[in-house]
Computed example of a mutant assay.
Amino acid sequence: MSSATSDTPAPESVDTTQPSIARVYDAFLNGGNNYEVDREVVRAVRKVAPEAADLAVENRRFLIRACRFLAGQAGITQYLDCGSGLPTAENTHNVVQRANPDSRVVYVDNDPAVLAHSQVLLKENENAVFVSADIFEPEKLLRDDAVRAHLDWGKPVALLQMGTLHHYNGEHTRTRKDIMRAYVDALPDGSYVAISHFLDPEDEYTATARKMEEIFLHSMMGSGTFSTAAELRELFDGLELVPPGLVRCAEWRPDAPRLAPLNAPQRCIAGAVARKP
């Protein structure tokens, strides 16, 4: 699929002079909803990690496998997908509604481009809605009328934070752990939380992780922190990790045996699914 160019007209609400997290991910996935300013970030990261697109690829694959588990094995029928990003071929509602057509999904993002594309995508799907909100203000988001109305908060909900928390820079003077605690406290018992996050593997690939981090943080995008496994486990405080626990995304319940060793970017993004007792 050919990508959009800086000459392609954009909606008035879309700022094409600044990279967007959603559009940078789209560019990594070779999507068609990004601009030159987004691809500049991609090219810079690829200079230190040529396979850097695998950060986005493994994040998306983990989302799909986690949703299959949640819908097929855990029996969850309600999903709050935070920082959902631009639509691709397999979105959360596609995966979970294949298992149960009555599954309800609330997508949340504050990117104008995501809003425009999602409204078109979900136009004829009454069980999936989009909410424009800041996912790093959980109390405000959870009070949103659409969130309250579309999900039954007396029954388990799956909270998805896929590739989102590493883009939090402390704007709301609280930690990522504090943000997750606010979400977890609001979830009904029996709910699930799925998180993927850039990983500092604390091995020979740490240098690559930190170089990628430096480019993300010092690009116009300005976010993209790599955390250690110990730091990521804190995000699941009070939850029961589903086997195999917190591992690299590529190693979380893979669809088939791996024939080649993981490359550097594949070693630098981790994920887990956990249950609230």
Rank of each mutant, 00 (worst) to 15 (best):
W153S: 04
T92D: 01
S132A: 14
A89R: 12
L86A: 06
G85E: 06
H150I: 05
S103M: 01
I135N: 03
L63K: 02
F130N: 05
V37F: 03
H93G: 06
R46M: 13
N110P: 05
L63G: 01
S6T: 13
V120S: 14
G75T: 08
L122G: 02
C82F: 07
V120M: 14
Q78H: 06
C67Q: 08
F69E: 13
G85K: 07
R98A: 15
A146G: 00
K47W: 00
D54K: 13
G83S: 02
L141Q: 01
R98I: 06
A44N: 10
R104M: 09
A52G: 06
V14T: 07
D144W: 01
E40N: 11
W153R: 06
L55M: 14
D144H: 10
Y25P: 10
L141S: 01
T88I: 08
L63T: 01
A27Q: 09
A49K: 00
A52K: 02
N127E: 09
Y107V: 14
Y25N: 12
G32L: 04
A10F: 09
V57F: 08
S118C: 12
A10Q: 11
R23W: 07
P87F: 14
V57M: 10
Q119N: 15
A49P: 00
N59W: 03
R104F: 09
V108K: 00
A44K: 13
E126Q: 07
Y107T: 12
D145Y: 00
E58S: 13
L63M: 11
L86H: 04
H117F: 10
R23M: 11
V24D: 06
C67E: 09
L80A: 08
N30T: 08
S6P: 01
F136S: 03
L80W: 03
I135R: 01
R148N: 08
E12W: 01
H93V: 06
V105P: 02
D152Q: 03
V42N: 04
Y25M: 12
Q78R: 07
N94A: 10
A52P: 01
Q97A: 08
P19R: 10
A99N: 03
A49H: 00
P101E: 04
V41N: 02
T92I: 07
N125K: 13
H117S: 11
V42F: 05
V42R: 09
A116Y: 08
R65A: 07
P11L: 15
V57N: 07
R46Q: 15
P87H: 14
F136V: 05
A53I: 03
R65W: 04
D144M: 03
I76S: 08
V131G: 01
L142K: 06
V42Q: 06
E58M: 14
S6W: 07
N110H: 11
A133N: 09
K47G: 01
R60V: 12
T88R: 04
R60D: 12
A113E: 12
K123M: 12
D54T: 11
